[in-house]
Design a protein around this nucleic acid. Structure first.
Lengths: 144, 144
DNA sequence: GCTTGACCCTGTAGCGGCTACAGGGTGTGT
DNA sequence: ACACACCCTGTAGCCGCTACAGGGTCAAGC
């Protein structure tokens, strides 16, 4: 399997595959006589695993750790659970901050419904408020 | 005002200020005889504006555009509204995908409660499922 | 006057996870 | 014979900082 075929099969860019090889995430494959990379089924499996983890937003360094368990099925898998727990905690923290952010933007957006000149724009006024040491509508309660 | 004082006043790292100057976001200040940057009140105001926008996760390129309205109060502010709307849409899209992600991770996590050897680990099994062309619990409905 | 330490300067490289070239070689079809 | 799609390596760019290295400046204390 050439790199373009692997890329198509795994729905990944060719450059991404070479990148994974460069950082040691995907093992370097054999080479054909012409120097082209020649991939085996194992590479597609591994790449599918990596992409599945990436859809779960797991960091490449963590994927490296997960792959060690794939390679050593007799190992204790407690670390796998911890890793997923940590990942979940990260996502939830990010969700919290994005929810806050959304509210701040909604409030901010409500400051200007009829666009006029910038001098009158409620949004710009709010953005400028802390500039003058004033409170702003979007960060009323000062939570970060 | 020296850079360290400005940094303290605006709760920003010194390096960040120099970075903003380098990319043209914060105007280069006058220099003292010893070559130190000498900031005026205007710089603190501008930096406060930038940081306020950053807490709203507005991109630096967009902040540059917002600053043009600060500098030209007679301009039409319609672009400001558009910009905030776009920002809000981005945040909401990200929220949606994070919410999906959270559910996927919750389901995945439920596959392994009692850590055992990797060969038995339900989490690893699920992560490996697409590797074999199987469906996985976390991406049942194939959305994205 | 000499040292210490806190600050300032410039310039460059690193983070993550790719993406996008430039500048070349190879293989296939007409 | 040529076009064109694919492959190769190597390097730089994206974002928003952060972290150095290797130097200069200044005030306080001995």
């Amino acid at each position: 399997m050439k790199i373009g075929e692997l890329a198509k099969a795994a729905h990944v860019e060719v450059e991404t595959i070479r990148y994974y090889e460069r950082i040691g995430l995907l093992p370097a494959p054999a080479r054909s006589d012409n120097g082209y990379r020649a991939y085996a089924g194992m590479h597609l499996e591994r790449l599918a695993f990596i992409r599945h983890c990436r859809t779960l937003d797991i960091a490449l360094a963590d994927i490296t750790r997960l792959l060690r368990f794939v390679d050593d099925p007799s190992a204790e898998c407690a670390e796998v659970n911890t890793l997923i727990d940590t990942q979940l905690a990260r996502i939830r923290a990010r969700l919290d901050s994005l929810r806050t952010l959304e509210q701040q933007l909604v409030v901010l957006r409500s400051q200007c419904d009829a666009p006029d000149r910038a001098a009158q724009c409620g949004i710009l006024h709010e953005l400028e408020a802390p500039t003058l040491g004033d409170a702003c509508v979007c960060h009323d309660e000062r939570r970060q």
